[in-house]
């Protein structure tokens, strides 16, 4: 066993082998149901993440008070931070639970990890929220390349590597919702009819930019900009720049917002000159 030179190291050495961590979880049985908090204590081995802990709780859902509860409901799929499913608020910050390593977020014996559902989307149950609004936003900004069908018509446009690099970075967006959870202007809208009444958010703006950058995708640029000039559009951004700080894929969201903002201005001026 390593002989520690400082108290901190001693604590960590002990913690690395086997330690207890508490999980304080915000639970809710469904829409319009009461919120309650439950705490579970787990013995943690090296290399665990929030997912493996939720799996252990599912197999044995007994709270620290010794009360038998139910497995926690949460959304997950790939477990390698590429599908976007398992986003939740962990110790106050929206992020993917698969890449939330316990050794990092709760390194010491007796630490507590707090898990909550994202607050900007309606809760389905426990930590699972409904992010349909994000996919609807992708429809509203026509986030696609309007090809002439799936037939064999030869290659697409050639592209310089620098242009590909810009598009690839934007195209890594996994619709996880972190940027919206962190945005002061993006509001919870329970009802579908409210979705286009408040700020559409960074993800859709950035996707609009992505498709405006593609030679064929740019055919719909005017439509996209019209949508983003509306009351929920780019002008609603308050420039807090939280989105870019929390994006797990480091997508340059503020650059996208600025680019779309410039495009809408140019679009508005050219419309004015052409009298349309």
């Amino acid at each position: 066993m390593t002989v520690a030179t400082t108290n901190g190291t001693a604590k960590r050495t002990a913690a690395a082998n086997s330690r207890k961590v508490r999980f304080r979880i915000k639970r809710c049985d469904g829409p319009n149901k009461l919120v309650r908090w439950e705490t579970f204590e787990l013995t943690i081995a090296k290399g665990e993440n929030v997912i493996s802990c939720l799996q252990k709780i599912a197999a044995n859902p007994v709270t620290t008070e010794g009360k038998r509860s139910t497995p926690v409901v949460w959304d997950c799929s790939c477990l390698e931070e590429v599908c976007g499913s398992c986003t939740m608020v962990i110790n106050g910050q929206a992020r993917q639970s698969c890449s939330a390593l316990i050794d990092v977020i709760a390194p010491d014996d007796g630490d507590t990890v707090t898990l909550e559902p994202m607050s900007k989307f309606p809760v389905i149950r426990d930590l699972w929220v409904d992010r349909s609004r994000m996919f609807d936003a992708l429809k509203r900004v026509k986030a696609w390349v309007p090809i002439d069908g799936t037939y064999d018509l030869g290659a697409g446009p050639r592209e310089r590597p620098e242009e590909q690099a810009v598009r690839y970075a934007l195209s890594e967006c996994m619709t996880c919702g972190c940027c919206l959870e962190a945005c002061p202007q993006f509001e919870l809208a329970e009802d579908e009819s409210e979705w286009d009444k408040s700020f559409i958010g960074a993800q859709a703006l950035s996707q609009a930019r992505l498709f405006n950058l593609h030679e064929t995708g740019a055919q719909l640029k005017g439509d996209r900009l019209e949508t983003l000039m509306g009351p929920d559009g780019v002008s609603e951004c308050g420039n807090a720049q939280n989105c870019v700080k929390v994006c797990p894929k480091h997508i340059p969201l503020t650059e996208s917002i600025a680019a779309v903002g410039r495009s809408t201005t140019i679009h508005a001026i050219s419309k004015w000159f052409s009298g349309k």
């Binding site: 390349v145 090809i147 064999d152 018509l153 030869g154 290659a155 590597p161 590909q164 690839y168 064929t216």
Partner: peptide, 21 residues
Amino acid sequence: PRIIDLLDRMGVPFNRTAEGY
């Protein structure tokens, strides 16, 4: 090869050579 062309038309950001292929 036909499938690659189709994906290319859909806008997949395939890595590119210096010449853009």
